[in-house]
């Protein structure tokens, strides 16, 4: 369950990065549809956080300790809302570029989460 979510969030984040990167390339600010996309990916990250915490509560353990695992889950949850808020303040292509960078950061966080939580 957690592995599937990690993979889903990674792919969704990369798609969002490409989408917002394209908007930046075309000199456009983020629009309603971009925010809908950010919302979808953020809901996935929230689901990942909930599943991760439930698994910890059930007695499972992450490779590098609970603190690091939860820190990465929280970072993954807040990456896009923070970048999205900044793109609301910066209504230009650079706001779109910021969201694209935020989505890339999220994808990197997912790779790290995969490193510390992988049941083969």
């Amino acid at each position: 369950m957690l592995n599937a979510l990690t993979l889903t969030v990674s792919l969704a984040a990369l798609a969002l990065a490409a989408w917002c990167g394209f908007a930046a390339y075309r000199d456009q600010p983020t629009k309603d549809w971009h925010f809908a996309g950010m919302a979808v990916v953020t809901v996935l990250a929230l689901a990942q956080l909930v599943v991760g915490v439930v698994r910890l509560a059930q007695g499972d353990e992450a490779d590098e300790g609970t603190a690091i695992f939860v820190a990465y889950l929280l970072g993954a949850l807040f990456a896009l809302p923070a970048a999205g808020f900044m793109s609301l303040v910066e209504r230009s292509r650079w706001g779109s570029a910021t969201v694209a960078a935020g989505a890339v950061v999220l994808a990197v966080l997912e790779v790290r989460l995969h490193d510390i939580w992988w049941e083969g």
Binding site: A71, A82, M86, V89, E90, W94, G95, A97, T98
Partner: peptide
């Protein structure tokens, strides 16, 4: 300073701040 490309810059510095602070504190 936070306008145009500066917004992207402040985002990246923010991410590096959070990452470096939490990592070194831990």
């Amino acid at each position: 300073l936070v306008k145009g490309p500066g917004m992207l810059l402040v985002w990246l510095y923010g991410v590096m701040s959070v990452g470096a602070v939490s990592r070194s504190a831990y």
